[in-house]
């Protein structure tokens, strides 16, 4: 079953002795539902990765970094997880994120999605959906509302959207939310 988009799966492992870019590896690309599952079932669950590792799923042709021309004007919907959620919910939330992407779940605004990233960190894991243009308010908000609903987050949980341009100049925790849902 062909997908609308060809996707690329990336992996990175934090090695402070090397440049960030050198730690980033393209795992594989796929463009069918069957190949997605073959890959997903073959690789480690996110919760089994060691701290400092990331997975990223991006549209073919977009690198998972702010500097890519398709990302640099964009931003991300960020889901910050408490430590105990790695055990309980992390894998479910990441799989749901992947299914949102490959299933083109954001209607016409799916074209504004660039990819998604999961960061495994001791201080708390993070999952984010990256979109192309932070100023496209209607699309960003639609994606955020659908995404929050698909993750099954309660209405009390607030997730924020940060422009990469803001995140790049501040530490992650200080970047201000441009939108919230």
């Amino acid at each position: 079953h062909p997908l609308l988009t060809r996707w690329a799966l990336w992996f990175s492992k934090n090695d402070r002795t090397r440049a960030w870019r050198d730690n980033l590896h393209l795992v594989t690309k796929f463009d069918t539902v069957e190949d997605f599952w073959a890959i997903y079932n073959h690789i480690k669950l996110a919760s089994k990765l060691s701290s400092g590792c990331d997975y990223a799923l991006f549209k073919d042709g977009i690198e998972p970094m702010w500097e890519d021309s398709k990302n640099k004007r964009g931003g991300r919907w960020l889901v910050s997880l408490a430590k105990q959620q790695r055990h309980m919910e992390l894998d479910r939330l990441w799989l749901e994120t992947l299914l949102c992407l490959i299933g083109e779940s954001f209607a016409d605004y799916s074209q504004d999605v660039c990819g998604a990233v999961i960061n495994i960190r001791t201080k708390g894991d993070k999952i984010a959906v990256w979109t192309r243009e932070a100023e496209e308010q209607a699309g960003v908000l639609h994606i955020g509302r659908v995404y929050k609903d698909r993750l099954g987050l309660s209405t009390k949980t607030i997730i924020g959207y940060q422009a990469h341009a803001d995140t790049a100049t501040k530490s992650n925790s200080l970047a201000k939310n441009k939108f919230v849902v």
């Binding site: 079953h1 609308l4 299933g103 083109e104």
Partner: peptide, 18 residues
């Protein structure tokens, strides 16, 4: 062309099909 969209249910069903 035709948009190829799969809902969550279909994607999950594909996980276990041969």
């Amino acid at each position: 062309g035709t948009r190829i969209i799969y809902d969550r249910k279909f994607l999950m069903e594909c996980r276990n099909s041969p």
